[in-house]
Write a protein that binds this DNA or RNA. Structure first.
Lengths: 165, 165
DNA sequence: TAAAGCATGTAAGAGGTTACATGATTGG
DNA sequence: CCAATCATGTAACCTCTTACATGCTTTA
């Protein structure tokens, strides 16, 4: 979901397309192609969520419109966690713009998704067809990474609660 | 990349669509929708890579054709690692069908990709705009997961070399 | 008997990828 | 001066998502 990412970045100040891409890259979203970025910008512009401000040279600086700001906050806050890794990471990147109690809720929702997934992985491991060692390695890795992410989330929740005191 | 996954599963024996989905699910590819699975099957059928064998009830069992077997082996073996997580996981799932020396090559290619990524993450962390604690958390998590995956790959490579003796 | 799971599909639309096209500016 | 990076875009193609449609079978 390019949209939330672009809105979030422009929420922090106007940028032009290339800068958006670079910032996304820094945030760990490698490989955002121009063929996906510029059409996304066009889309958002079409919805009136962003607008080109001034063009410095051949650059087009985009900023959030008032409508865009509202759309951003809705997108950031709303929506159950559907387990999409990418989307969660983007939401986290803009957590600063979310109310503290919503932050905790989002983290715990994510945690619940991962806990379910973990249970399912273990169920599968128990009753699946006798697997060769590579699929076993794959499944074990999935369990390990999921456990690790849950632990990480616990740390974030703890920090959030501590900071809120 | 549904294609490689479907070919790989049918390489191990004929299945019908629903079974393919279940097996994928077991392998950790949750959320393979029917709207992506059935068109994929149609696609592969159109290329002559798979063919419906017998229909038990309303089920359609698909099997690999000779051409499909060749296509599978090419897809599995070929292609540089472009860093796509999903694709790598699928390749690993069918590693048993790859020659031992190619397995090691694939693992090390993946390792190289991750090593590059790690270096980049660290570079970004050093020279990026002073970030709020959530983006910091995100970046640190990226570093940690990448390191962890590299260590895991090292384990796989070691096991592979040991097994090859 | 109702819900959950099995089983196959289609249609519309959103969105992404890859490749192409162009040109300025900056650094080694 | 050449390569890399900055900078913006288009076009064709492909694939996936979501929602709809249908109907059988198993299990609580």
């Amino acid at each position: 979901m390019m949209d939330l990412a672009v809105l979030g970045l422009l929420h922090e100040g106007p940028l032009h397309g290339y800068q958006v891409r670079r910032r996304l890259h820094e945030l760990g979203f490698r490989r955002v192609s121009f063929g996906s970025l510029y059409p996304a910008i066009r889309r958002l512009e079409g919805r009136g969520w962003i607008a080109a401000r001034r063009g410095n040279g051949r650059r087009k600086e985009y900023g959030l419109t008032e409508e865009g700001r509202r759309a951003f906050e809705e997108l950031l806050d709303a929506g159950v966690d559907d387990g999409d890794e990418r989307r969660f990471r983007i939401r986290l990147a803009f957590f600063a713009h979310l109310e503290p109690h919503r932050r905790i809720a989002v983290l715990e929702e994510r945690r619940a998704v991962l806990t379910d997934r973990l249970a399912e992985l273990r169920r599968n491991r128990r009753r699946s067809t006798p697997a060769d060692r590579y699929t076993v390695a794959l499944m074990e890795r999935s369990v390990a990474t999921t456990e690790s992410e849950i632990a990480w989330l616990d740390g974030l929740v703890a920090a959030e609660r501590a900071g809120r005191t």
